[in-house]
Design a protein around this nucleic acid. Sequence first.
DNA 1: GTAACTGCAAAATATTTGCATCCTT
DNA 2: AAGGATGCAAATATTTTGCAGTTAC
Lengths: 142, 142
Amino acid sequence: MTAKQQERIEQMLRLNKLSVTETRTKMLEMFLQSKSALEHASFEKLNGKAFDRVTIYRTLQTFLDKGIVHKIPTTDTSVRYALCKSDCKEHEHHDHHIHFQCDNCGSTTCLDGTDVPPIQLPNGFAAKNVEVVVSGVCKECK
Amino acid sequence: MTAKQQERIEQMLRLNKLSVTETRTKMLEMFLQSKSALEHASFEKLNGKAFDRVTIYRTLQTFLDKGIVHKIPTTDTSVRYALCKSDCKEHEHHDHHIHFQCDNCGSTTCLDGTDVPPIQLPNGFAAKNVEVVVSGVCKECK
DNA sequence: GTAACTGCAAAATATTTGCATCCTT
DNA sequence: AAGGATGCAAATATTTTGCAGTTAC
């Protein structure tokens, strides 16, 4: 990890009033380095020293609470997480981007440059958040 | 259950080469009567005789395999199911409608009349299916 | 030093599998 | 009668909780 990245991670944690620990730093490092969304299992099967199962659950929950990561909806039971953009605040997410799930390699990617089109809802429904999950074949697998 | 509904359910099952059993009939009846999507737990907490846990798992999987129901993506771990339109075939779903998840009552609804807008993907990605999940406050809770 | 974080053990939940029995065709 | 469907028991897998020891500030 570069000094710059280390700095960035520490800042993310401090901004959210979280102490800088080894587990949190390494998990955030994984998020920053990964092109696709991560799931609980991603953190368990590390080469070398793995994280404790329980700590992973708790750390992911903390990151969610603070708005550092967001969950990505899936049709399988797996829950996937990805880093939020910098303008997400606690309990106030602004992730208006599209998620892409590859049927071939199973990876989930946030397509940051792609906007979610406006959705027309029936009368009586008030939209607060829109999630778009496109599935198909990703760039790498094509 | 009306005779007409009974007839409809039997037809759904026969069309998919499934034998008409009490569990399947009652579960389909629940799907037909429910305005919102159902989850595993919905079938467990029935007044009166409940279904066996394992049978529910197996029946939902069978319905999925045959294209009778589809899964709805969620950000919590819960998996929800809703009836497919009649033109869904085995392993070939055509559910291009929007799902609405209420933050207040937790219900998930299929908005059948609402179309999914075309999504522009980055180069290299090939879309096969698009899922849109809007969350907010539903008609009933407003 | 204190509060927050982690790791182990164990409890609570959720899901899957095997097999004997029962029901639909 | 035969194959499929169900229900029970038990094996797995997943998630949560409690608590004692450790680390960050």
